[in-house]
Each structure stands twice: as structure tokens, then as C-alpha cells.
């Protein structure tokens, strides 16, 4: 909020608070700087070299997240896209901060059927890692995840690890505009590797658009509002980064497929292991 936008009472309260804070601050640090620092410390994830998953919920598969590095859109292979999905909800039904609070708290509920977001136990907060089971065309299941890069009262951002379908992040935000509350999901992405780039060209983009359109439609419906999603797609960089083609070695699609194909073998090994353990105990 700008200084001009504050009421006199707010300005007086802020001045009193500043006076109290000033006494406890090291010399040379203003209350404003301390406040910005606090906002930063709580909103951004801490630096991590590789991702760690504290708890793996039932039904989730952690083969493509643990030990992976984060990947910004710059680390991806394909063209860089910015996709923006927006809905307007009458302002009297929900404020931007209430909408973001609810979206964070009940994030998985608004996802389309067949996809599962295993939210961290502590919720959407900076540095937390969530596992994802996503549905791909042809009935294929993909196990992947995201890290919460940033979260404040007006927005939150999820960032992908190496091997995810795309390298990048998705920012969910809300603002007040002309009496409405605008909810927005904005994806900044590059396909991680040549296989995902091909997949995006062969219907993956359309599927992704549908995914976020359904999510925002469900969010608006929660507030009793039926609305069409406004979708804008911009190609930020048309160049493919061929030196990133080797990202395919981290591909979550390939690893998920191999994991699924290996299920009978794992089941058999488990059975034999149990049988063998049982034999020993009874001998």
C-alpha cells in the first residue's frame, strides 16, 4: 500500500509501531527495512541445493523429486511460454486475500479429476515440497512434484524440479479490479526435454490449458459464480535450447513408466522376500 493510500489513523498507528521497533533495531536499520526484511524472510523459500521430501503420503510416489534440483524456465529445452488464466468473481463474494487464503488451504480440491496434488502437511508455505500424480494422454500416470517457492497473502508460486514436464513456475495471485476479485494462475515454462516438447505440440498445451481452466472454474464455482476463464498465451522465446536436450535423462515420464512397468517385479520380490523371511522365522 502506498503512503498516500493510508488513512490518518493507519499512519499514526504505523508511526507508533515504527517508534517501538526502532528501539530494538541495530543502528542503521530503519523500521521500513526491518519490515521488508521480515516480509522477505517469511515469503521466500530458503536456498536448497536439492529437494527433500519429508513425508510421502499414501498413494504418492517419490521417484522424481527427492534429490532433484529446481529448474527455472531458463533450464528447460523447449520454447518459453507465458500462459495466463483469469477469472473475475464479484468483489462482494470474496476479497483477494481471502481468496488466496482459501486457495492455499484447499488447493488440491480445485484440481480436475484424475490428478492428485499431495499437499505438504504444513500446507502451502515457502520451501515445502508437494508430490503430484498427474494424468497424461493415453491413460499414463506421471509422478512428479513441486516446491513452494514463494507465498504471501496475495500470491503463491510453485516451482518445478528437474524432470518435470516443464521447467518453470506457476504463480497464483489475486487482485481487486473494478469491483471484482480477479483470480489468476500464470505459468512461465519451457518443456523440459524434446519428448515433452513434442508432447506439448501434440495436444499437451491444450490439455494444460484445460487443466487450469477447469481449476479456475472450480474455484469460481466455490463462490457460487459461473464464469468463463480468460486465457492468454504468449510465446516469450521461440528458440529451443538444444544443449538442454540431455534433460531427457531426468524425464519423469520415462522414470514413471519404468516404475509402473516394474510393479509386477516389485510385487514378486516383496512376496518372495516375505516368504523367505517367514521360512527363517519358522525354521
Amino acid at each position: 500500500m502506498s503512503a498516500e493510500g493510508r488513512t490518518e489513523a493507519e499512519a499514526t498507528a504505523r508511526a507508533d509501531a515504527d517508534e517501538e521497533i526502532r528501539e530494538e533495531l541495530p543502528s542503521g536499520v530503519s523500521p521500513g527495512e526491518a519490515r521488508e526484511g521480515a516480509r522477505d524472510a517469511t515469503s521466500w523459500a530458503k536456498n536448497v541445493s536439492t529437494l527433500e521430501v519429508a513425508d510421502v503420503p499414501e498413494g504418492a510416489v517419490n521417484i522424481n523429486v527427492e534429490g532433484k534440483r529446481l529448474a527455472s524456465p531458463i533450464q528447460g529445452f523447449g520454447k518459453m511460454w507465458q500462459k495466463t488464466y483469469r477469472v473475475r468473481i464479484p468483489g462482494e463474494r470474496v476479497s483477494p486475500t481471502d481468496l488466496i487464503a482459501l486457495w492455499k488451504e484447499r488447493f488440491p480440491e480445485f484440481w480436475p479429476e484424475g490428478n492428485r496434488f499431495h499437499a505438504p502437511l504444513t500446507g502451502i508455505s515457502p520451501g515445502e515440497v508437494a508430490l503430484i500424480n498427474a494424468a497424461l494422454p493415453g491413460g499414463m500416470k506421471l509422478s512428479t512434484g513441486v516446491m513452494v517457492l514463494y507465498a504471501d497473502e496475495e500470491s503463491f508460486t510453485l516451482m518445478t524440479p528437474q524432470g518435470h514436464m516443464f521447467a518453470g513456475w506457476i504463480t497464483f495471485s489475486s487482485i481487486a479490479r473494478e469491483g471484482d476479485t480477479v483470480a489468476q494462475a500464470q505459468v512461465l515454462m519451457r518443456a523440459s526435454d524434446p519428448i515433452f516438447e513434442l508432447g506439448l505440440a501434440l495436444g499437451g498445451h491444450r490439455q494444460e490449458d484445460r487443466f487450469w481452466e477447469q481449476t479456475l472454474t472450480a474455484l469460481a464455482a466455490h463462490y457460487g459464480h459461473e464464469v468463463e476463464v480468460d486465457t492468454q498465451v504468449v510465446c516469450v522465446d521461440r528458440k529451443r535450447q538444444w544443449r538442454r536436450a540431455s534433460n531427457v535423462w531426468h524425464s519423469s515420464a520415462i522414470r514413471s513408466t519404468m516404475y509402473t512397468a516394474g510393479a509386477p517385479l516389485r510385487w514378486l520380490r516383496q512376496k518372495l522376500g516375505r516368504g523367505s523371511a517367514g521360512g527363517k522365522s519358522t525354521a
Binding site: S43, S72, P73, I74, M80, Q82, L149, Y150, D152, S155, F156, T157, W169, T171, S173, Q186, L188, V236, D237, R238, K239
Partner: peptide, 17 residues
């Protein structure tokens, strides 16, 4: 904030292009 970082990525992408 994170949207600001995305804007900087946009500048970086355009400059590289």
C-alpha cells in the same frame, strides 16, 4: 515478489533472443 522474478526472466529471455 515471485511475479517480479518472472518479469525479470522475461527480460532475460528477450535479451538472450
Amino acid at each position: 515478489n515471485s511475479t517480479g522474478i518472472a518479469l525479470i526472466v522475461g527480460v532475460l529471455a528477450r535479451a538472450r533472443a
